[in-house]
Design a protein around this nucleic acid. Structure first.
Length: 593
RNA sequence: GCCGAUGUAGCUUAAUGGCAAAGCAAUGCUUUCGUAAAGCAGAGAUUCUGGGUUCAACUCCCAGCAUCGGCUCCA
């Protein structure tokens, strides 16, 4: 998460707008109760509990009123109150009372547990704008004239739980954006429009990669072109991992519930599992992850310390019953596959193995020129095992991240129930964060499965397991790749790498020869038949974002040449056909971007 | 799951209570073309599903499903 500078001019304006939003809301609904109204990237929001039902139409009313308040140039006045005064003043504002209580106790409104150093505070500060008075540290503008009303827009309305907990009441969150100039606002809005064009949910079906169907919510249908991308990614994964001492297995997609009782998933993960019953009334569960079956594979034979690290990979299909409101195209699906591996090691091998995995991460992400960041997820509320081994594992991971010089953030309570983890995070077209890879340390599940290896001294020991994915889910990764490249895949991933366009039917035979030659060189090629005009066929190929278009007419045939167009670059001129093939192969082998 | 929005032909969109309309795609015929859309014709709709209001519903109301934007969750 980026830190926002709350003292910058524009953020002071945004923060003040949050207050004006509240001022307007209070006028519309005098019974409204107010939560918090912070700044966010490009704007602000306010969480409000309205006395009645609220829909989108309120945005226009509020926005109009905010602009009137700016025109009236209302002032922002601040004042300090003692806790007794504050409690009295906000007696009808239950959310504010709760915040005051926290300030008194911890010196901050940050949630308990997030603040390590409680401060002593004597009083609270309030700001008044119009009839609305807010508990607020500021800073704020002096008067509303400092706001450019033409550079403000209320964007959307959403439900948000008070203090981020679903146990609490849901408030109405109203989002707005604000800039210093109208041009900046318009630029932001058109950037948003442009970003939406890169949405994989739009581009994917347009490019024939995948589709969805109402009867399988959250479960993609991979179409022929999408399968090519999927397979290319898996091929790359397989090649890189076999070279690094991994092996590959396939294990059952559905197991009896006993397996998940042993692993702990039945207890910790039940509500996210697809469960099925046979005619004989036995309960099975579709696997939501591969680890239990990887444990079964490890336990299948007696294991020696000589085998460790034992790196067992797979790309099996997983099913997770994600709640309906959370689905998001390929980015959050109910059926997906992971480039998974479970690595069985001794405690001494943790650091080396993590460093090896981080090397793979660097290789995989640099190939796509993807910017990523790390998150360290620590012990969650629902966890397995003892606190002491968690603490050790967490500090081990911290040391590893520090020693390889990577920037990382700590996400408290974000670990898996069996161990802490390092996550890789990347952004989608709308700049939202998505976890892709994750490297999780696990001292618990091997114990539950009673896994053992025979050590040098002839004694049985319990292995440590690293659960790790690099792409994360192939589905999510492809979704993010589509948005990252705006559908313009690098040549090695492009479903169709070359489209050949014979100018008229006299050139069709020659185009077929060229096509065969390309196919022989493992280049994916299609011929666009001369039933349409040349221009039309070029347009069609460009819309499909085909990397190269080869045009073949009399001139080219005479000299065994081809007229080449590159997507995004236009006409590259005429090349000798064999040179063209060679350069394509080179580009594919290098996995150039 | 929660808050809000959306759902019309394969796709993009029109029709604000009175005969469901258009472009593209697909199909047939004509055209065989030198770098981002050739011409003509015919066809294509359970307006997401189910109820209700009304003489009359794509349009209004209720419920469900799916999708989207958020919240929560995300092993």
């Amino acid at each position: 998460m980026e830190k926002l500078n709350k003292n910058s001019k524009i953020n002071i304006i945004r923060h003040s707008l949050a207050h004006l939003l509240a001022t307007s809301a209070l006028e519309i609904d005098p019974e409204a109760k107010f939560g918090v109204g912070p700044i966010i990237k490009n704007g602000f929001y306010y969480d409000i509990l309205f006395s009645g039902k609220v829909d989108e139409s309120i945005l226009e009313k509020l926005e109009r009123r905010i602009k009137e308040l700016v025109k009236q140039d209302i002032a922002f006045k601040s004042k300090k109150l003692t806790f007794a005064e504050a409690n009295k003043f906000f007696k009808k504002q239950s959310f504010k009372l709760e915040l005051i209580k926290d300030i008194k106790k911890f010196g901050t409104t940050k949630l308990q547990g997030q603040n390590d150093n409680p401060k002593n505070v004597e009083s609270v500060k309030i700001y008044q704008s119009g009839d609305f008075v807010d508990l607020c540290e500021g800073p704020h503008i002096k008067t509303a004239k400092e706001i450019n009303p033409n550079a403000v827009k209320l964007m959307k309305i959403a439900g948000a739980y008070w203090r981020g907990s679903e146990k609490n009441q849901m408030l109405t969150r109203i989002y707005g954006v604000a800039f210093e100039t109208k041009k900046e606002l318009n630029d932001y809005l058109s950037l948003l429009e442009e970003s939406k064009k890169r949405d994989h949910k739009k581009l994917g079906p347009q490019l024939g990669l995948f589709m969805f169907h109402n009867t399988a919510p959250g479960m993609p249908y991979w179409l022929p072109k999408g399968v090519i991308v999927l397979n290319e990614l898996i091929n790359f994964w397989r090649e890189e991992h076999l070279n690094r001492g991994y092996c590959e297995v396939k294990t059952p997609l559905i197991n009896k519930r006993e397996l998940y009782e042993t692993s702990g998933h039945w207890e910790h993960y039940f509500e996210n599992m697809f469960i099925s019953k046979t005619a004989e009334n036995e309960t099975y569960a579709l696997k939501p992850m591969n680890c239990p079956n990887a444990m079964v594979v490890f336990a299948n034979q007696s294991r020696s310390y000589r085998e460790l690290p034992l790196r067992i990979g797979d790309t099996d299909t997983l099913h997770r019953f994600e709640f309906s409101g959370t689905l998001n195209g390929l980015l959050r699906a109910r059926e997906f596959s992971q480039d998974d591996a479970h690595i069985f090691i001794t405690e001494e091998q943790i650091k080396d193995e993590y460093l090896r995995i981080l090397e793979i991460v660097e290789k995989f992400y640099s190939i796509f020129n993807i910017e990523y960041s790390f998150r360290l997820g620590t012990r969650p509320e629902k966890f397995m095992g003892d606190k002491k081994s968690w603490d050790k594992a967490e500090s081990d991971l911290k040391d590893i991240l520090k020693s390889c010089g990577k920037k990382f953030e700590i996400f408290k309570g974000d670990g898996a129930f069996y161990g802490p983890k390092i996550d890789i995070v990347m952004k989608d077209a709308l700049e939202r964060d998505w976890q892709t890879g994750t490297i999780q340390l696990d001292f618990q599940i091997p114990k539950r499965f009673n896994l053992k290896y025979i050590d040098k001294d002839g004694r049985e020991k319990i292995p440590v397991v690293i659960h790790r994915v690099i792409y994360g889910s192939l589905e999510r990764f492809i979704g993010l790749l589509i948005e990252h490249f705006a559908g313009n895949f690098p040549l090695w991933l492009a479903p169709i790498q070359v489209v050949l366009i014979p100018i008229n039917k006299n050139h069709l035979d020659e185009a077929r020869k060229y096509s065969n030659e390309l196919s022989k060189n493992n280049i994916r090629v299609e011929i666009y038949q001369p039933d349409e005009t040349l221009s039309k066929r070029i347009l069609l190929a460009e819309i499909q974002k085909i990397p190269y278009i080869g045009i073949i007419g009399d001139k080219e045939i005479k000299e065994e040449k081809i007229a080449v167009r590159k997507h995004g670059k236009g006409d590259l001129g005429v090349q000798i056909f064999t040179d063209f093939v060679k350069s394509l192969k080179d580009e594919i082998n290098k996995k150039s971007i």
